[in-house]
Design a protein around this nucleic acid. Structure first.
Lengths: 224, 224
DNA sequence: ACGTTATTATGACTGTCAGTCAGTTATTAC
DNA sequence: GTAATAACTGACTGACAGTCATAATAACGT
């Protein structure tokens, strides 16, 4: 039936419209200040209707967040599929993450906020599942690159690609969060440019995990 | 007047009693699930009275959190004042932090939840000030130790003690947060022991920042 | 002792907001 | 044209942070 399909499409479209409205409001005000009434008004729908498409405010928040995950995944995918050497790809992944943070700070904040155990109360199981799947895909892109770098003897053989991903990802994220929330404080009170600190942290970690071969290549890449 | 002083003491005592009750409830339920009515009941006071002593729920939360900061500061202070070599002290600071996380996970969570920009809306300026002061003291303990380690040529001279503190602190914190919220997931799905990952991350960073002299000392310490 | 003032405490009340649901409107099927 | 189904609405409920008029208690002066 063509009608069934059209209805399906329209339903999807409505879901996206609600998402657009929710994104606008969540970006402006954050999860707790934003109200469902506001979002409903922005979507030109009644509040009740929102609940026909999303189970809770938190679910809606996660749905917006997933757009961020999606965006980041696409950026990573472009790097993975590029015609670069493995090490260059890994460096580009890092730079993509930074670019994501700089150009989509709202998505970045959501991504991290939703990570917190404090958050996951009101979230439906299905939505959580979906998020986990998407986030897993993202991680796998990086893990596979690290595995490749180890196979190519660019990174010390005794290291585990999953652990490497966790370590580099976590330290980068932690510093970006600091940049996001405390950049001015550190700049003004301590004369510390956190962007430089992030670069330093990265460079320290890279130097610690590369083989001699990898380090040569790394230095070459960084020079140009 | 002795009466004035007694009243002062009693007021402080009441404040502490409220804090005890709030801590109990916040530990059990977290900020958003805990209610002021519950805390009032636990304190055997009416809700209105709580507001005579603390300006808002968030202020009360921060007041409990500050007990955590205090506790961590005392642990650090004990290390700083110990009769150990500088490098050993720095390692002990790291281990103290880990011990704090393991023995007081509730304080640890509060410390880092309150860090978020999402949090700071309802907080009074005075309380924020107080937190900043306490937190600054904590950081300075570590920064000074790093400075000493640089002076003693244990750590590369070109590194900045403040940046070092930020980097090591942030990466440790990020991994502890992961341990706190996702330990089982990584264990079960990926066979990763995040405690080991934290150790690895630390060891990588240390190896990257130590001078040859420092590295020798470090290896000696770690052996015993 | 006893009235007067100051301090401390109370809990009913207000405003706000997530989430619900009985009822309305629009769409499709027959 | 009418019955059945789907989409939507917004007034309502319950929960909760924060307030405030009032009450209870303590301190002080005479």
């Amino acid at each position: 039936m063509g009608i069934q399909e059209r209805k399906e499409r329209e339903k999807e479209h409505r879901k996206e419209e609600i998402l657009d409205a929710a994104q606008k409001i969540f970006f402006e005000k954050g999860l707790s200040v934003a109200t469902m009434d506001e979002i409903a008004e922005a979507a030109e729908l009644s509040k009740g209707t929102l609940y026909l498409y999303y189970k809770s405010k938190e679910d809606l928040y996660l749905a917006v967040m997933m757009r961020g995950t999606q965006k980041l995944k696409e950026m990573f995918q472009r790097v993975v599929e590029s015609n670069e050497a493995t090490l260059k790809k890994l460096i580009n992944i890092g730079e993509s993450y930074m670019e994501f943070f700089k150009t989509s700070p709202n998505y970045f904040r959501m991504l991290h906020f939703a990570q917190l155990p404090q958050f996951h109360r009101q979230v439906s199981v299905e939505m959580k599942e979906q998020c986990d799947i998407e986030s897993r895909k993202l991680w796998n892109l990086v893990i596979e690159l690290f595995q490749r770098a180890i196979d190519e003897k660019l990174i010390l053989a005794e290291l585990n690609p999953i652990e490497l991903t966790i370590i580099l990802w976590s330290s980068a994220t932690a510093l970006m969060l600091k940049i996001d929330g405390e950049f001015e404080i550190w700049k003004d009170k301590m004369q510390i440019d956190l962007n430089e600190t992030l670069k330093l942290s990265n460079s320290l970690l890279w130097r610690a995990i590369l083989t001699e071969k990898g380090l040569n290549e790394f230095t070459m890449i960084k020079k140009t």
